[in-house]
Design a protein around this nucleic acid. Structure first.
Length: 158
DNA sequence: GCCAACGTTGGC
DNA sequence: GCCAACGTTGGC
């Protein structure tokens, strides 16, 4: 077993929120619709069962980390890319050689309080966090174990 | 709603 | 392979 790694995924709550995930049977969803190669590589190759994931609300008021999920199934092809009826359909992808991948995420813990982007920016130790880099738009991104601990502690205080 | 930053596309 | 144009993301 490799050591557990940590991640962050973004979702716009107007399309799919933390509460939406929490309300699902088993609180599990396919993390589909990602159409960025860097993020795809993480979904396909790097995110492993048991890894933990911050759930982040983007384009929200306020933008914030709101919960923790766990990877419960590792990378497999994204069916939405193959479905012409789906808004994420990609005509360049095909079943024999899928371009896009998903993992399954299960909501495991709602944070005691939301951690806003503004608060994260003011927190020592998070200066290098991918989320906080200027122009960072990656919707699936790695979080270091140090960053993970700082953020979890922050959620328990204040 | 604005706009900066980024990724992708396509002409050359 | 370069780079301008375009579409998207996402904070403010």
């Amino acid at each position: 077993m490799r050591e557990r790694r940590y991640w962050l995924v973004k979702s716009e709550p107007s399309s799919f929120s933390w509460d939406d995930l929490w309300a699902l049977p088993k609180r599990i969803t396919h993390w589909d619709g990602v159409r960025n190669y860097q993020a795809r590589n993480l979904l396909r190759d790097e995110m492993k069962k048991g890894d933990l994931v911050f759930f982040y609300h983007s384009s929200a008021d306020p933008a914030a980390i709101v919960g923790i999920a766990e990877v419960v199934r590792e990378g497999y092809p994204d069916a939405s890319a193959l479905d012409p009826q789906d808004e994420h359909f990609d005509p360049k992808s095909d079943a024999a050689n899928p371009a896009w991948f998903v993992v399954d995420l299960k909501a495991t813990k709602k944070l005691p309080r939301a951690l806003t982007l503004a608060e994260l920016r003011q927190t020592p130790g998070l200066e290098k966090m991918t989320l906080l880099q200027k122009g960072s738009r990656l919707s699936v991104q790695p979080v270091s174990s140090g960053e993970w601990e700082i953020i979890c502690e922050l959620a328990e205080t204040g």
